[in-house]
Design a protein around this nucleic acid. Structure first.
Lengths: 171, 171
DNA sequence: GGCCGGATGTTAGCGATGTCAACATTGGAT
DNA sequence: ATCCAATGTTGACATCGCTAACATCCGGCC
C-alpha cells in the first residue's frame, strides 16, 4: 500500500543527507544539525540515515571531512602570508563549519580515517608554505586563536576582522 | 499530600543548580549538561530551574561568568610570560569549562551583563601585564589557538602540551 | 525469464530533553 | 493573622537519537 510519489530508493541518500546537514550547519550552527531534520529535508523517513551512517557522530565526521578537503584546497595555492587572512575569513564566513571541523568532534571521531586524513592534509598545506615547523605552528596557533576569538565576539572593543588582523599580523 | 522528606523550599537552589551543572560540565563536557539532570542532582523537580534561569542558555551563561571570574584571578598574579602556559594548562585541565567560556555561548548570551563583564575582566588581566596592546592581542590569540588545537587533538605528531609549548613560546 | 538475497527505506516505539501552563506551598511584609 | 509573591510541583507537548521489526526493490544466479 505504498502511496509514495517518489521511488522507494532515493538514489543517493548519503550525499543528500550530507547536503541537508550542511545547510543546517550553515543556518544554525552545530546545535541545529539533527538527523531527523536532515532526513526530512532529503524527503525520507526519520531513520533512513542509519543505513548510511552508524550514528549522528559519523554523519558529522563525514561532513567535517568534506569541509577539510575544501578548506585545504582554499589554503593550498596561497603564500604563507596570505594564508592567515584566508584562514580567518573562512572561519568568519562559515562559523558552523569551522566549529564543526575544529571542535570536540575531531576528538570524538578520532577513529574515522577519512576525517583524520583530511585534517592532516590541511595542516600539510600550511606546513609546506612555512619556512620551518616552529613558524608553521606559531602561525597556525595565532590564526586559529584569532579566528575563535573573533567568532565568539570575545575581543573587547573593535571586532572588525580586518582591523584586528592588520594590527596583529606582521607586515 | 506532600511526601517530601525535605523542605519544600530548597534554600539556595540557584547555587545548587550551578554546582550540579558544573559537575556535569567537568564530567562530560558541554553536551552533558542538561537542566533535568542538574535538577535531579539538586534533588528537585525537572522544571524548578525555571524559577532561577530563563532557559538553559541563561544557566550556562551564569556558569561561564562564574568561571571567568575564577579564570581571571588565576591569571592575575602572574608575569606576562607565565600567563601563556597557565592559560593553556587551564584549558587542558578543564576542557568543558574552557569550551563553555569561549564558545558559541558568549555570542548567544551577549545580552547577559555579568558574562560580558567577567570576560572583559579576564582580558584586562592579560592586557595589564603586556607591554602594549598589540602584544597582548598577539599573545592572547596564540595561546588561545594553541589551547584549542591541543584540546581538539588537531596537532599532528606529538600532542604533549609541554613539548608544544616549549617549541612555540618565545624564551 | 523467474527467484532470491542483500541493500535500502519504513513504521512503531523507547527514553531523554527543553519548555510551557496550571497548580501547590511557603515565608515574610503588612 | 493574613495575604501575596517567590519558589517548587505535576502534567503535558514537541523534538531528538536510536533500536527492532517489517517492507520494498535491485542485481545476480539458475
Amino acid at each position: 500500500m505504498s502511496t509514495l510519489d517518489r521511488p522507494y530508493h532515493h538514489g543517493d541518500l548519503r550525499a543528500a543527507l550530507l547536503d541537508a546537514a550542511d545547510a543546517l550547519l550553515d543556518e544554525g550552527g552545530d546545535g541545529a544539525v539533527s538527523l531527523r531534520e536532515a532526513a526530512r529535508r532529503a524527503g525520507v523517513s526519520p531513520t533512513a540515515a542509519y543505513r548510511h551512517f552508524a550514528d549522528k557522530t559519523a554523519l558529522l565526521a563525514a561532513l567535517a571531512a568534506r569541509h577539510f578537503a575544501q578548506f585545504g584546497q582554499a589554503l593550498g595555492g596561497r603564500s604563507f602570508d596570505a594564508m592567515g587572512p584566508a584562514y580567518v575569513r573562512f572561519a568568519l564566513e562559515r562559523p558552523g563549519r569551522f566549529r564543526l571541523m575544529f571542535g570536540p568532534l575531531l576528538r570524538a571521531a578520532q577513529t574515522d580515517p577519512a576525517l583524520q586524513a583530511a585534517s592532516a592534509a590541511a595542516f600539510q598545506a600550511l606546513r609546506q608554505a612555512a619556512p620551518d615547523e616552529a613558524s608553521a605552528l606559531r602561525a597556525w596557533a595565532m590564526v586559529h586563536g584569532l579566528a575563535h576569538l573573533l567568532l565568539d565576539g570575545a575581543l573587547p572593543g573593535s571586532n572588525d576582522p580586518d582591523a584586528v588582523l592588520a594590527r596583529v599580523l606582521p607586515g
